[in-house]
Design a protein around this nucleic acid. Sequence first.
DNA 1: CTGATAATAAATAATAATTATCCGGAGAGA
DNA 2: TCTCTCCGGATAATTATTATTTATTATCAG
Lengths: 154, 154
Amino acid sequence: MAKAPPTAHSEPAQRMEQMIAALRAAGQRVTPQRLAVLRVLAESHDHPTVETIYERVSRDFPTTSLATIYKTLTMLKGLEQVLELGFAHMSSRYDGRKPSPHAHAICVRCGAIADPDIGPMESLAKDMAKRSGYKLTRHQIDFFGLCPQCQKKA
Amino acid sequence: MAKAPPTAHSEPAQRMEQMIAALRAAGQRVTPQRLAVLRVLAESHDHPTVETIYERVSRDFPTTSLATIYKTLTMLKGLEQVLELGFAHMSSRYDGRKPSPHAHAICVRCGAIADPDIGPMESLAKDMAKRSGYKLTRHQIDFFGLCPQCQKKA
DNA sequence: CTGATAATAAATAATAATTATCCGGAGAGA
DNA sequence: TCTCTCCGGATAATTATTATTTATTATCAG
Ligand SMILES: [Mn+2]
Ligand SMILES: [Mn+2]
Ligand SMILES: [Zn+2]
Ligand SMILES: [Zn+2]
């Protein structure tokens, strides 16, 4: 059997290990429910909602409560292990694979979210910090429009 | 008396005229309540919340309902006469002075919002469109941190 | 391994922001 | 003036999220 090819970003399994390590380092308990949430986050490429995470966790863990998902995500946010994308008229979306702030493209029709690597935001943030006088700590950069699929249906 | 100095962006009065014209062009009625909302939007530099707009409108128009503010803002958004800044864990903020998308700095302590002109986002949007395949129509670019005042208090 | 204990999970209630519904009234146009 | 539609105000409903309460469980000292 051939060796698995190298990948640019972490495999779900190793991303999970990172998150578990972060929990332990923070003195947080590692419970089955939390492991289930971590797994969903590590495996999901679609920037799922709380509801979606809940459904995916529920497959293996049917008694889990929505509140548990919320609380786990809040905790992981505090540990900078998950990125929350917050919006006004739709529920938040979560990225557990790339937990540091990065730009997103959001389809206003179907909700699909893409996050290709684009030119770095550092210079933009520097510029904003300089001209506003703010001490900046994080950002959320969102572009809205139609995903390729929805463009076809138009 | 000296002539008023020229300004880079529109005076409240002329911004109001623009908005009124947009209403008329869209066949929308220009009512006293709506005029009151327009005035608040044209005069406010603080990116007010719905609640704040409501309070300001209520000074001159005490019987106004919150729902009217919401409905008027929704309409103005449709006419691209007001920019909504939507967030996950706080209520939306509105900019009626510069209604086209632009970057903001938001103070996480006191909520102050600044929007200095910074390096253009066009190239960033182009890059995102190219790499994601999305057809982009608008964006929201937010930087979070501490405003100058809150930095002092630290 | 066992038991003590503090943290956590589930269920549920509460909250906050926003949106929908209903109805009376004002206003533009015939 | 009449009419018909739009609009405003009051209030109910909805949605997303957070708080509370109680039972359960992961962790670790012994
Ligand atoms: Mn992402
Ligand atoms: Mn602005
Ligand atoms: Zn789409
Ligand atoms: Zn501040």
